[in-house]
Design a protein around this nucleic acid. Structure first.
Lengths: 191, 191
DNA sequence: CACGATACGGAGCAGCGTTCCGCTTTACCA
DNA sequence: TGGTAAAGCGGAACGCTGCTCCGTATCGTG
């Protein structure tokens, strides 16, 4: 405990309470109206002022990251597990991408937000990519080592491509993101 | 000429002049700031009031369509031409998709606008898809008939997928839309 | 030239993100 | 327990956006 003055002096009780309330309200609002839901709506759901949101989560990206952190972690941890359990690295890759696609298409507008180059979304890029790209990279390496796919595919690009393909997948029955992502992965295959 | 009262009673000279001016201003503004440039900016460039824009082009989509109509037509007409000139239907398909990708990635934000499900963009969907999907469909059919790709790929879905992959391709050197589109097309190949 | 029809301009409204500051609540200490 | 400084809160207010609306200007024609 003698370590340099603890930089996190424990927040006030009402602040912690509000943070929890806000996360719940935001999660509900995201489900109801997508991740682009107006800040005022989230504030109203939580019964707080908009200032409170901005104090806890300076940018929308911070809020999104906080809401979905658990699910992203789960996805990241599933990578190595799938690799260990599957028959082939390619099968593991396919399953893992499926997991990622499922995650994206069930969160209205998240895929779109993830590709936005708006400065406010830097946090979102940073977190999602830093957490998931290395996982994807290991899967790609394993598949390449097994000779199942061509080497040299950049995990970052693949993830962005998959993310892009998921844009607008909800509420459009004529567009099947999973199928297109499947084609993309099929295109990786060594012939 | 005796046909039912001509429904286009020839517009006033100033109106025609303004329409032309607006198209030029919009084209310049799109290049400078992307297709999401504020309406006021376009009006300022053209030296007109915002009301004038809305009178000529009720929605942003109408303006975008008008600006890019020529290039879309050229792309549509290139389809049959490529099919006639190429060694194989698959080569023609690849070249045509390349043309489409080139078009999209050079127009800031157009790929994004094309996927937007905002009601105001219905016109954009309608025009782009109505014009290009049939062309793509013919190319797909020809390639399938030649046994080069699996049958049953929906042209609409493919176009949407390609469009999606082009989102954010400008101003991001680490993301190569062309390569990913190439993988997607490769994924179509019959094995 | 005069007079309707047509088109124009831009003020004004509503919805959004974001900031800022007076007031309230909390935690701590005498 | 009561008092006080710091931490946190609420929401008015600002700037930027799309879009509408109507008084005014311009055009084409008899």
């Amino acid at each position: 405990m003698s370590e340099a003055g603890s930089p996190a002096p424990r927040k006030r009780a009402d602040a912690r309470r509000n943070e929890k309330t806000l996360l719940d309200a935001a999660a509900a609002a995201f489900i109801a109206s997508g991740v682009d839901v107006p800040v005022r709506d989230i504030a109203a759901r939580a019964g707080v002022g908009v200032g409170t949101i901005y104090r806890h989560f300076p940018t929308r990206a911070d809020l999104i990251v906080a809401v979905y952190r658990h699910q992203v972690e789960a996805c990241a941890e599933a990578g190595p597990a799938l690799l260990a359990d599957s028959d082939s690295p390619h099968a593991a890759l396919t399953q893992w991408i499926d997991l990622f696609v499922d995650f994206l298409v069930t969160k209205h507008g998240l895929a779109g937000a993830m590709q936005s180059d708006d400065a406010a979304f830097t946090t979102l890029h940073a977190y999602f990519l830093d957490r998931l790209v290395p996982v994807c990279d290991r899967l790609l390496d394993a598949a390449a080592a097994a000779g199942e796919i061509h080497a040299g595919m950049d995990a970052y690009q693949l993830m962005r491509g998959v993310g892009n393909l998921c844009i607008g997948a909800e509420n459009n029955p004529r567009y099947d993101a999973r199928r297109l992502v499947g084609l993309l992965i099929a295109g990786l295959r060594a012939r």
